[in-house]
Write a protein that binds this DNA or RNA. Sequence first.
DNA 1: CAGTATCCTATCCGATACTG
DNA 2: CAGTATCGGATAGGATACTG
Lengths: 231, 231
Amino acid sequence: MAQPGYKQFCPLAMAAEILCSRWTIVLLRELIAGSTRFNDLRRGVPKMSPSLLSLRLKELEMAGIVERKEVRSERGVYDYHLTEAGKDLQPVVETMGIWGQRWVEAQLSLKNLDPSLLMWDMRRNLNPKPLPRRRTVIQFLYPELAQSKRLWWLVIEADGDVDLCWSDPGFEVDLYLSTDLRTMTAIWMGLTTVDRESQRLSFTGDRKMAATMQTWLGLSPFAVEKKRTKA
Amino acid sequence: MAQPGYKQFCPLAMAAEILCSRWTIVLLRELIAGSTRFNDLRRGVPKMSPSLLSLRLKELEMAGIVERKEVRSERGVYDYHLTEAGKDLQPVVETMGIWGQRWVEAQLSLKNLDPSLLMWDMRRNLNPKPLPRRRTVIQFLYPELAQSKRLWWLVIEADGDVDLCWSDPGFEVDLYLSTDLRTMTAIWMGLTTVDRESQRLSFTGDRKMAATMQTWLGLSPFAVEKKRTKA
DNA sequence: CAGTATCCTATCCGATACTG
DNA sequence: CAGTATCGGATAGGATACTG
């Protein structure tokens, strides 16, 4: 069942048939954020199985929202790009995200901590401008987590490209940060700030880089929206 | 499966968990449009089973989107109202509907014709201003449909209240209109106009009322958006 | 890297009937 | 009017392994 659609001519119902299947909106967030490769998309939706991701991408292609193209001069490598119709979904995703930021209780969001997802998001939104124009390495340590998820490195290249490593890249580290995942996530979501959480953040290394963290750490696109839930 | 959520702290993912379950967005459209009673909501989502409607309403209540209250001085009669958070979903529903109107092929929408739904929508959006300040009755005839769905009456009371009848209310009819359901739906959706479809519309009765139909016939809230699909 | 293939079950949901 | 109760089937989608 379920699938036979809503049988309504209303354009909203038609749109909802396409957009409101499981994972679709979150996948669109990734596409809108600029991911184009299958495995990059996977990292943005890690709990989604590859089969389902593949299926959804095909559905979006059928719906005229996504275009799949072989990358020039690379055999067997494909790119997913939003079409005009796909780009026009940005306001939909944005308003829904803003609503979530305004009205979904922070406690609820913070039940879904995930270091790899957070680091992946931080990688994407990091702003290299305030950092030195050379390779810069920042190490994140979450002491409470299991071995394999405890250490992360953001490597900002001279040209501004940002890489995320979960094993020591071997470069000299400019700034070491140790904190708990919940605090770091709350900061990234804009629920609090680096300053307000200074008690829970422990820096070692470049003092100035530490002091300006709030400026180079790119926050969630929805971080600017204030919570409106009554306490 | 499905249900365990997306396990993402992202506010968009949190919002999607609430909003992107089956029927929810369409139900919200009804609530935003102003329906407050269980059976009125049913008419707006006729293909949704009452159990599921009941379940969704409870979920929306839990999510702080809807409030259920007993109507004053009427035992056992309940009202569903949007909370602040619920009202704030209007932009979400609106942008999604606009996207649908822009990008979903008209042919696809027009596969889902439904006279009772159309008439129910027309009832809601009808604009009594251009009509006489007395009871006015307009009869719709869809000759191609089965008996039980062929004849409809919109009764506009002197105070502007609009009633929909599917059996002859017995009042004198001011205007008779005969057309096919597809044409009437396309007009209501803003895909075409009364003027452009004059060939397919057959009026009897008050000439002036017929001539001004485009003004008193309330269109879909999304009718103003132009299609952007390339031909 | 970029997906497919397969299996299997939890659960969603549609249909229908029923209640105060 | 405003829902609840029950039932059963389809299927969506999770888990896992595999391919070129």
